[in-house]
Structure formats: C-alpha cells, structure tokens
Design a protein around this nucleic acid. Structure first.
Lengths: 129, 129
DNA sequence: CAGCAAACTTGAATGACTCAAGTAAAGGAA
DNA sequence: TTCCTTTACTTGAGTCATTCAAGTTTGCTG
C-alpha cells in the first residue's frame, strides 16, 4: 500500500461516488502528480481486493465508493446524476433471491433505482413522472 | 416503419438479448446491406417509442429485447455472459420501493442478478461461489 | 546487495457509441 | 401533379472511458 493508493482511498472516502477523473484530481491534490493510468490500475486492484466498490450506472462513467460488503443499492437522479445509497430492500445478505433463479447460482444483485432527487424534484415541480 | 426497422424488430424478437452488432448482422441477412448507424438510430427510436427495451450490463455492450412494459429483471452469467429473463421479485409494478427512498421520486428499478448459468455451473463444478 | 515483483510512467490503441453533413425516399398541402 | 417538409439512411469523422504495451522505478526477500 503506497502513498498514492492511500490517497485514493481517502479521496474516495471523502467524496461521494466519484468518477475516475474526480478521484485522479483528488489524489493529485493530496500527493502531487500521479498518472491517470496509475489511478485506474490502483482502483482496479483495490476493487479486486474488496476495499472499494465499483458502481456502473448506464450512461455515466464508472464510480467508486468505500462502502463495501453490505450489498446496498443506489438511487440515481435522472436529472442531475446524483447517487445516493439505499439499504437493501430484502433480507440481509440480500436481494439474492429472484422469484425463479432459472437454475442460476446467484451471488450478487445489482440494483439501481432511477428517479429524481429532492432538489431536482422541487426544481421541475414533478409529482409524477 | 420501414423494412429495415421491421427487420430489426424481427431480429431482436427471434434473438436472445442481442447486442447491436448481432442485430446488425441479422438485419443485413433479412433485407440486405444496412449501415450500422442506421441500426443504432433505429434502435434508439424504437426504444424511445417503447417498442424495445435496452439492457446495459456493466462490462458488456448494450443489448435489446422485445419484452417491454413489465419491468422484469435479468440473470447474467459471469462465465459465458448469457442473459435470462426473470420476473420481478416484489409486487406488481414492482421493485419500485427501496426501503427508504431518500425523498427521491422513483420510477424505475434496474436489477441485474449476477451468477452462473446451469451449463457453466456444471462445467466449473461450482456449488458455492 | 542482487533479484524480483509490484507500482508507476508515457504513449498508443481499442471498442462502443455519437455527431455531422449530405442524399434519398415518403407523406401532405397547394 | 408538383412542391415542400420530414423521416430514414449513408458515409465518415470524432469522442470518451478505458485498456494494452513497454519500459522505468521502487521496495521488499532471500
């Protein structure tokens, strides 16, 4: 674990579902110039090692967060792109039970709720979508 | 609705969660040379019009299916990439209820179950992951 | 202190997709 | 019918996030 990787962990931890570019900026602020590829490489390593979780909402670049191991889900705002954590709706190791699993051995459920966050909801005056 | 677009609908309908390249091939087989961009354009139009549903699993190109309007979910095999439909686990317009919605106005839930399909499960001898 | 693997650098390449500009065909109004 | 507008389609270029490749530096192990 190097200074650069520590800075990545701190940046991701302080930030809010940051994308790679934002993490790169944060790391450079903390420890000086680090190449973007080093950030990619480290993020992959940290994710493989279970220290970071990767979030990949369609239509937006990959994001990372430090909250791992609880298989929580995400609310994504259609208007501003903001991502908010939300606890798993079912059970505790959870959401791993589709009604019928078609014989699959399921180990993870990726859930993204799409909608409007409170500020955007107020701004657009939306009551229903 | 042109011949090309009809061929797209038929190809997607006959296929099984095909990606754009596969749809393009299928369309060309049916009606002769059609440009890839025409396929992209048409798929977007058909999706906007609610005739096709787009599936975007992380790490794989976008796929399309004709089953729309029931917000069902998908099982994705980690080993071979096969995608299988699975009905929604909760309620009927469903899965739109996270435990806490953090004030969001939620209109859609995107759920992907990751695991091993039966053949890959047998092949790898996996009982647990 | 030599050797080796991990981390990091720069630079090029890839894949999936979008944008732009122009042509062709199809539907409506005069 | 002819004109006009819109939609569909074509070719070609461009973008973005990400990965690959090759070489250099760093730091631990024996």
């Amino acid at each position: 674990m190097t200074a650069a990787r520590l800075a990545i962990m701190q940046t991701v931890s302080d930030g809010d579902h940051l994308d790679v570019e934002a993490i790169h900026r944060g790391v450079c602020e903390r420890v000086g110039q680090v190449s973007l590829q080093a950030v990619y490489d480290s993020l992959n390593a940290l994710q493989r090692g279970g220290l970071l979780r990767r979030i990949e909402p369609p239509g937006s670049p990959t994001r990372y967060e430090t909250r791992v191991g609880d298989n929580h889900h995400h609310l994504v705002c259609r208007h501003c792109g903001k991502i908010t954590d939300v606890d798993c709706a079912v059970g505790h190791a959870p959401c791993l039970d589709p009604v019928s699993d078609a014989g699959y051995l399921v180990d993870e459920a990726d859930v993204i709720y799409w909608g409007l966050c409170p500020p955007c909801r107020a701004e657009t005056g939306a009551v229903h979508l």
